[in-house]
Simulated assay, not measured.
Amino acid sequence: MVDKLQHWREQKLNLPAFDVRFREEENGNVSIFDPLRRKYLVLTPEEWVRVHLVHYLTAYLDYPKSLISLERGLRYHVLQKRFDILVRDRTGAAFLLIECKAPGIPLTQKVVEQVSVYNQKIQAAFLGISNGNTHICMQRDAGTGKYRQIQHFPDFSS
C-alpha cells in the first residue's frame, strides 16, 4: 500500500494541497475520504481532482459546503447523465456546474460540450471544467444562452 499511497501523494495538481485521508480496502484498492460526503470513496484520478477542487472552493473561495452537490444524476432527454459538482446559490438556484476530468485528460471542446449539455437541464449561471491542472470557467449570458470564458472561478458572494 505504501507504493500506492506514495503515488497519490506525488500527484501534484494546480490546486492547494491539503491533508488528504486515505484508507486501504480489503480488495487492495485505496480510498480517499471525501469530507463533504463524510465517507471514503474509491480513489480514482477523477475523484482525486474532485476532492481537491471542492477543498479549494470551500477553504479558499468560501463556498458553503451545504450548497454543494456531488455526482448526482440528471435526465437529459432519454439519457441518464451524472454531473460532478453543482453549487447552488443561497436561493437554491444553480450557480456553478463543474465537470472534473483526470489529470491526464486534456480539456477539449468535447468536454466543454459535455458540461454545456448538462447545463441545458440545470441552467447554472457559471460552468467550469478542470483536470486539476487546467481550469476553464465560463459565464452564461442569460439573454442569449451563450458562454464567455472568464479568468477564474466565480466569486460566490457576488
Results as ranks from 00 to 15, higher is better:
3 D>T: 08
4 K>C: 02
8 W>Y: 12
9 R>K: 14
9 R>W: 11
9 R>F: 08
10 E>R: 12
10 E>K: 13
14 N>I: 07
18 F>K: 10
19 D>A: 08
19 D>C: 07
20 V>T: 15
22 F>W: 09
25 E>N: 15
27 N>S: 11
31 S>P: 01
32 I>H: 04
33 F>D: 07
34 D>K: 14
34 D>V: 14
34 D>N: 14
37 R>N: 13
37 R>S: 12
38 R>L: 07
40 Y>Q: 14
41 L>M: 12
41 L>W: 12
41 L>C: 01
41 L>D: 00
41 L>T: 00
42 V>I: 15
42 V>P: 03
43 L>G: 06
46 E>T: 06
48 W>K: 10
49 V>H: 04
50 R>G: 04
50 R>I: 00
53 L>G: 09
55 H>N: 11
57 L>E: 04
60 Y>M: 13
60 Y>F: 06
62 D>I: 15
63 Y>S: 05
68 I>E: 05
69 S>E: 03
71 E>M: 01
72 R>G: 15
72 R>E: 13
73 G>L: 04
73 G>E: 06
74 L>K: 04
75 R>L: 10
75 R>Y: 06
76 Y>K: 04
78 V>D: 04
80 Q>W: 09
81 K>W: 07
82 R>N: 02
82 R>A: 05
83 F>Y: 15
83 F>I: 11
83 F>T: 08
84 D>Q: 04
85 I>P: 12
86 L>E: 08
86 L>M: 12
89 D>L: 08
91 T>P: 03
91 T>W: 08
93 A>W: 00
93 A>K: 10
94 A>H: 03
95 F>P: 14
96 L>G: 15
96 L>A: 12
97 L>G: 13
97 L>V: 08
97 L>M: 10
98 I>V: 14
99 E>G: 05
99 E>P: 11
100 C>P: 13
101 K>A: 00
101 K>T: 01
103 P>M: 10
103 P>G: 02
104 G>R: 06
104 G>M: 07
105 I>F: 09
106 P>K: 02
109 Q>A: 14
109 Q>G: 11
111 V>K: 08
115 V>K: 01
115 V>D: 02
116 S>R: 08
116 S>P: 00
123 Q>E: 08
125 A>F: 06
131 N>S: 03
132 G>Y: 00
133 N>V: 05
133 N>G: 15
134 T>W: 01
134 T>H: 05
136 I>K: 07
137 C>I: 14
137 C>Y: 12
139 Q>P: 00
139 Q>S: 07
140 R>C: 05
143 G>A: 11
146 K>C: 14
146 K>H: 13
146 K>L: 15
147 Y>L: 07
148 R>C: 11
148 R>G: 13
148 R>N: 13
150 I>T: 05
151 Q>Y: 06
152 H>N: 10
152 H>T: 15
152 H>W: 01
153 F>H: 05
155 D>S: 07
156 F>H: 01
158 S>Y: 05
158 S>C: 11
